[in-house]
Design a protein around this nucleic acid. Structure first.
Lengths: 238, 238
DNA sequence: CGATGCGTTGATAACTTTCAAATTTAGTGG
DNA sequence: CCACTAAATTTGAAAGTTATCAACGCATCG
């Protein structure tokens, strides 16, 4: 696994390139709206930035969970392989923080889906910071609560039919990454299938049938246009 | 929905009956082991205790999420109904805390599976406490991280076969509630099915076939004896 | 004793996976 | 830039798994 002292490390001073999406989203829904985000402020000046090429391993199961990571650019996925099957823990887009663990060791692996830059944040430093500053500790809690909420949403997704899962996936991705109605999927069909607990064939067939039903269009296999969001939400079953 | 001022409310002074299972478990795996749990200490003197009869509603979706709850006795489940299907968010046993939300409104409902006593904890009070005391805020974070971890484990469960899910469920319940190898299930087949994203028939058939394979025994439908844990773990696929 | 709720069992239908092959896309070296 | 090769995606047919519909057994409770 790459260490923070790897040659491609560079100290983060150019905070202009850091997209504070996650923190902003939290601020939107939580308690005091005007309150600026102390955690986010602190993180900006905290960690080094590491670049990973496509498919590079960021950490693997059982590594020491000594760092949090914040995505600066690119896409990261966490995953776990159990008895041959790979389950994706989640996808992380710029602004998202990943690597939060309950235990001192990694329970998931993480890899770069595309070329990616991440900022690394020493867990001990964050803990120390949180110990001194209650506001930061509280924000750390909110951040985790948000990921918990997302995990719960996904549990609901995983018990549905293939069509509902794919529809839900497209809606989620559109919400998180889309500029308009077109979603540029950075991940392969295999990644999607593993995320949804389906096979690549089922994902492919479902997308094809949605295209036939004029709910989506696929100019290329990685680009999906959401023609009829209300139909998608109906398919999603909520 | 029942309010904390309901007639069956009683102030919690008899802290001897409160089982700090969740907090202890956290302490076991987290950083400094000797450190006593400030959150837990504070909670003991914080909230009133409410009793709910079997199947009573504790809160429902869209209620204001103004309280955290700590189970004192009995079993609670959170759930959500979406397009006819009910998905169980989780089961909570004595010592567990539930009702953590990212948003100010409930995204899940909660009901008592058995006759239950819960301690209620005002969210604003906890927030205030966390704002003053970084140690408490940090423990709140750890608590949430733990639930996140559990949610992730369950996502892995939900993509498996029926047999693997049921095996995983039995192992989880045995770990959380069993005195020895016998698990007294407090919930119905329907609850189990909704938790695992299966039907009651599939759950029933799977349990029957496990009994035929001498992996478990069922003296009654609610009591399950784990005869062969290693076989269960094999069926669980990990 | 009959009603009711819960759990089990059986038969069939629907859905998803698996295996196989065709087709498209992307990557590489000339 | 093109051609070639490898990888990714789509499509088809058959097999396997789970859901659905229906009936039955069993215990509890008035």
């Amino acid at each position: 696994m790459l260490e923070p002292t790897a040659p491609n490390t560079e100290v983060s001073r150019s905070s202009a390139t850091i997209i504070p999406g996650a923190a902003l989203a939290v601020a939107q829904v939580f308690d005091r709206a005007g309150e600026q985000n102390r955690l986010d402020q602190s993180l900006h000046r905290m960690g080094a930035v590491i670049s990973y090429p496509r498919q590079a391993e960021i950490f693997v199961v059982n590594d020491a969970a000594d760092y949090l990571y914040r995505v600066i650019s690119g896409i990261v996925q966490t995953y776990r392989v159990v008895s041959g099957r790979r389950q994706i823990g989640g996808f992380y887009v710029p602004g998202d923080i990943f690597g939060i663990e309950f235990s001192p060791k990694r329970t998931l692996s993480a890899e770069a889906v595309t070329d990616t830059k991440v900022q690394i944040l020493k867990r001990s430093a964050i803990n120390a910071l949180a110990g001194r500053d209650a506001a930061i500790a509280r924000e750390l809690f909110i951040l985790t609560a948000r990921q918990l909420w997302r995990a719960q949403e996904r549990m609901l997704l995983l018990v549905k039919s293939a069509q509902e899962r794919v529809a839900g996936f497209l809606i989620e991705m559109a919400d998180r990454m889309a500029t308009c109605d077109a979603v540029e999927l950075p991940m392969s069909r295999k990644d999607i299938a593993d995320y949804l607990g389906l096979t690549i064939e089922t994902v492919s067939r479902t997308l094809t049938s949605m295209q036939s039903a004029a709910v989506i269009e696929m100019p290329t296999s990685r680009c999906i246009v959401l023609c009829d969001r209300s139909a998608l939400k109906r398919l999603n079953g909520s």
